[in-house]
Amino acid sequence: MRLLAAVLAVLVAVLVLAGTLIPLPALVAIRFLLLQWGVLLAGTAALVGFYNLLAVHWRNLRKGGLQTLYSFILLLAALATFILVLLFGSDSPLIHTWLVLGIIRPVEASLMGLLSITLIYALARLTRRRLDLLTVLFLLSAFFFLLAMAPLPFQIPLLSDFLAPWLQNVLVTAGARGLLLGIALGVLTAGLRLLLAVDRPYGGK
């Protein structure tokens, strides 16, 4: 069974890759078909994930402890949302106004605000945690670009108009590109390992 899963995974990967790189109509059609199957599987996986979420919190509810109340609220909210969306549809004003705009958006926005505070606090404590050349360079570049990019009440000559854009477009972009290239190479080799069945996270190993 594990061998069959590995063979199937490799076959599908090769077909999709071929359909992407080789513009043959047959290959493109197979690729589209496999992509559709993949999308279906991804949706099903989302449902399985939802079931996993419910099961975990149901077990917490039965086990008791500090997480019992939160698990109960989560289970209640999840089931209520599921039932309401089934009844009224996802584009219903009830769902949109009360659930999305009334609960989800404020919560996530507040967490984003908390993240901003955490970022500033982490920046303030950076020298206490670690002090080396890289840390000093990081601090200096952060201050420099904050000054350059921020809309200041005052204008700093040459900084906002020339220096900051050049540094951003050249140095920052180049450094970011370098990191992204390295990540791309890592993605490439990770995909190769999957393609060649060296890595079999689907239980084939």
């Binding site: 901003s116 970022l119 500033i120 606090y121 920046l123 303030a124 404590r125 950076l126 020298t127 206490r128 945690r129 002090l131 601090l139 952060a142 201050f143 904050l146 000054l147 990019m149 921020a150 809309p151 200041l152 009440p153």
Partner: peptide, 23 residues
């Protein structure tokens, strides 16, 4: 946005100097 960035600059700078002083 500008006020927030200036505050971040100030807090980061003061915190960095404070950390250096403690070290």
């Amino acid at each position: 946005y500008s006020a927030g960035l200036l505050l971040a600059l100030g807090a980061g700078g003061i915190g960095a100097l404070w950390g250096l002083l403690i070290r």
